[in-house]
Design a protein around this nucleic acid. Structure first.
Lengths: 160, 160
DNA sequence: TATTGTTATACTCTATAACTATA
DNA sequence: TATAGTTATAGAGTATAACAATA
């Protein structure tokens, strides 16, 4: 590609391909051991870490999708009995999402395998110094990307 | 998460999140400037680099999907006039995929912006030494992942 | 008026299996 | 028998806009 040096291009490709392989393996594991998509797992983990309850908006925060996409996923998780939805008494517009015992159990069922995949594919065959170096560089990369104009096309409202 | 040290977990999260941000930006750019999905772009690039022609199987190689998925994408690209499909005289079972002039033009239209995104998000705010280090480590990670055997010993899915 | 969330709808993409035809 | 590719079909996921209710 014009405009990028070979080693720069190689870094880009290695980065993207590594994560694709890792995420594919993670998705396989989550589906096989817990019948969860990657996103459903992330949502459950958020509730788990938040001690059980979040509003829809707080739940979606950082997991990038449209609100309708979140509603869809919440409906799937509710149908599976892993969460419940109930009105929020302090803000009647909001919906409180609560993880169920079954939801916590599903996390417990899936998490060991998840960690094992990450360890086997990413951590174990890398010297610990490299794990540290990788983390330092990629943390800077991530922070830099986050600081970039995130939505170049600002969500401008158009009049109908 | 149990079983992973904080710096190991941090590296995992930084890796996944960096690439998610990068790929999201790339997809936006490809869609906006060339009306292409990430995968369609990759397929066109393969043909471009292969000097124009590949069989379906060779084209799919490494880009992970089912054959029906490739047929679907090829149909999209053909409908858009970016490739053509024709029989292979040396193997009557095979289909030769050829990039059209319009396909090459589309690459030319999209590539500068693509490189610019990668440069802006990944390359430019990183010391060149870090780019090199990142590439070295991640190349090893990728090669290691590729060499992993499939997990035939994965626990069975629960069945009701 | 702005925010929270849902619904309706349409579209993209993926996966499986059945199928044709060549090797 | 195995391989190359297509088709049929079904399902998951996503995005947009219209909508109702509340702040």
């Amino acid at each position: 590609m014009p405009g990028l040096q070979p080693h720069q291009l190689g870094t880009y490709f290695a980065l993207v391909e590594s994560v694709n392989l890792l995420q594919h393996a993670v998705e396989q594991q989550l589906r096989a051991e817990g019948d969860l998509s990657d996103i459903q797992f992330q949502l459950l983990m958020r509730l788990f870490d938040a001690d059980g309850q979040l509003t829809m908006t707080a739940l979606a925060d950082g997991v990038v999708y449209s609100r309708s996409g979140l509603t869809y996923q919440a409906a799937q998780l509710e149908k599976a009995g892993l969460i419940t939805r109930s009105p929020d008494r302090t803000d009647e517009r909001a919906t409180l999402v609560t993880i169920t015992d079954a939801g916590r159990a599903r996390i417990g069922q899936v998490l060991p395998g998840h960690v094992e995949v990450v360890r086997r594919l990413l951590i174990d065959n890398l010297p610990d110094a490299d794990v540290t170096t990788l983390g330092e560089i990629l943390s800077r990369v991530r922070d830099h990307m986050r600081a970039q104009p995130p939505r170049s096309a600002a969500p401008r409202k158009r009049k109908p």
